[in-house]
């Protein structure tokens, strides 16, 4: 993405620290800039501070030190209700938020706090149900939906509020291939609307394939922030977390061991298949 030299970050975190009441230091001196329209992955082992970091963005927890600026405004004194209009967090467990009698009512509930007219609420609800392919479940209880559908509904109930920043906590966890595909399309659509998207994930293959920028965290600190391919190909950095190298990276390391030099050309699944196809073609032509 081409960025203007003087572009002001949408989110600016300056020396953020957070200590839980029991004394656990969850975040230590975090400095981070995130720009409008970016898609960012936050990765790291469990307990690294990923969830604490995103919770500071809508005021669910207040940093014990440092300041957070969204759209150049300090958010420290802003209420959760105000911040939730700008920052939408979609949590891991959808059953933590589903309670209404019907899927339609669930979406309605999210929109009511935006002070919209009844007509507008209904219009947005209908639109969201269509967009998320939930129309067929309109009158069904959210508690009777499958795991994947309920995750979709939880996401719909946040996205219908049209927040500028979308944060997903483990969006691919427990999702089948079709559901992951739906989620990828959803992210692409939201990016077209210039939404800033932050994903917390342990799914390294997913991150490698779809996320351009990755932040790696360990023990409440950011240890790497850069292009996903650079960060996740770095054996030293990966060793600091509980992650493993992406399959493509493992593949070209194996090629390197075999003395094959074309490794720099391989950076995606397509490159890998093309490389193997050519290799087989060359071998068979030699025979």
């Amino acid at each position: 993405m081409i960025r203007m030299a003087r572009e002001i970050p949408l989110i600016m975190m300056k020396e953020i620290g957070y200590t839980y009441p029991n004394g656990t230091r969850a975040l230590k001196n975090i400095n981070l800039n995130i720009f409008t329209g970016e898609l960012i992955g936050i990765m790291g082992r469990n307990g690294a501070g990923k969830t604490s970091l995103i919770r500071t963005l809508n005021g669910l927890i207040r940093p014990t030190s440092g300041n957070i600026y969204i759209k150049n405004e300090n958010i420290n004194s802003k209420s959760i209700a105000t911040l939730s209009k700008i920052v939408g967090i979609i949590f891991q467990n959808p059953f933590h938020q589903l309670f209404a009698n019907s899927v339609e009512e669930e979406i309605n509930f999210s929109l009511r706090s935006l002070n919209l007219s009844k007509e507008e609420i209904q219009k947005r609800t209908d639109q969201t149900l269509l967009e998320f392919d939930l129309e067929k479940y309109r009158k069904r209880s959210p508690l009777n939906l499958s795991g994947g559908e309920s995750k979709k509904l939880a996401a719909a109930s946040i996205i219908c509020r049209d927040p500028q920043i979308l944060i997903f906590d483990e969006p691919t966890l427990g999702q089948d291939a079709k559901e992951i595909e739906f989620f990828i399309n959803l992210i692409n659509n939201e990016r077209k609307k210039r939404k800033t998207i932050i994903l917390i994930t342990h799914n390294i293959e997913f991150a490698y394939e779809y996320i351009p920028r990755t932040i790696l965290m360990t023990e409440g600190q950011i240890i790497a922030d850069g292009s996903t391919k650079e960060v996740l190909n770095n054996e030293f950095l990966i060793g600091q977390t509980s992650l493993i190298l992406p399959q493509i990276c493992q593949f070209y390391l194996a090629l390197q061991e075999l003395g094959l030099q074309e490794i720099n050309k391989i950076s995606s699944k397509n490159d890998m298949t093309d490389y193997l196809r050519n290799l087989i073609k060359n071998k068979s032509s030699k025979i």
Partner: peptide, 11 residues
Amino acid sequence: NILDAQQSRGY
């Protein structure tokens, strides 16, 4: 966690 999830959608 439930309170956090609900507050994240304006509750």
